[in-house]
């Protein structure tokens, strides 16, 4: 498996999920913020997927089992706090990962150098919202905690080794845990304590095993290109 495909699919799938907020976000300002993050990720996805093949074919003509994204990014948006929990878990991981890649000399050093600035902002956005929702009203606190709890079991997959990706998963996991713990505690929330992966995950997203909502997301993402091959405007 190509590491570019893994990182590219992470970015593509999360970009699509965030794009689903367009027209539905709680306030206009936040809608634009989420769309900006989605577009940053889409730019990363295009660079990564283009490096291994035709970006349109890879995005629109692959079946579910050929996607290599982690299961975390394909999880449905849920309420706003749920989306922010997903953003916190993923953008802290992506920021630490890209920092490592940017400091190295591997094939992803150039991309990571550019993307790490974008991702730093995504992380800042997520952390600030976790603090506000967690330390906000009783309802926002409860919803934020629910989001963190529900997505916790998808976080273990982030630190499994990826072929062709020269990073130290163990130290990444350590840095991620202390960063996430610090935000969660400052937000008066509780770090979930359950296992960081499920018994049934069996290697999961990086091996092409995805959760049920992913198929429906792909159907929506791909239907236009499949109905009108090569359509453009």
């Amino acid at each position: 498996m190509s590491a570019a495909l893994a990182l590219g699919d992470d970015a593509l799938v999360l970009s699509h999920r965030l794009g689903e907020w367009a027209g539905h976000a709680p306030v206009l300002e936040e809608e634009v913020a989420l769309a900006n993050i989605a577009l940053d990720l889409l730019g990363q996805a295009r660079m990564l997927l283009s490096s291994v093949g035709d970006e349109d074919e890879l995005a629109f003509l692959r079946e579910e089992r050929s996607f290599r994204n982690v299961q975390l990014v394909e999880q449905p948006n849920g309420d706003f706090a749920h989306t922010i929990a997903r953003q916190l878990y993923f953008s802290v991981y992506q920021h630490l990962l890209y920092e490592q890649l940017a400091a190295g000399t591997g094939e992803f050093a150039d991309l990571a150098t550019k993307a790490v600035k974008e991702v730093a902002y995504h992380r800042d956005h997520a952390e600030r919202w976790v603090l506000r929702l967690g330390d906000g009203t009783a309802e926002s606190h409860e919803r934020m905690q629910n989001g963190l709890d529900a997505l916790w079991r998808f976080t273990g997959e982030l630190f499994r080794p990826v072929e062709g990706l020269d990073v130290d998963g163990e130290s990444l996991h350590g840095s991620w845990s202390s960063a996430v713990t610090s935000v969660v505690e400052r937000a008066t929330l509780r770090l979930p304590s359950g296992p960081q992966s499920s018994a049934w995950s069996a290697g999961a997203g990086r091996q092409g095993l995805h959760t049920e909502p992913f198929g429906r997301m792909l159907a929506e993402m791909q239907h236009l290109h499949r109905s009108h091959p090569g359509a453009s405007w």
Binding site: E29, E30, V32, N36, D124, H125, R128, R132
Partner: peptide, 20 residues
Amino acid sequence: SLHAPDAEMALRNARDLYTR
């Protein structure tokens, strides 16, 4: 102009709305 709960968020919303 824009809406935001506090100054820090206003600054970030401004970044997203007016400097993209």
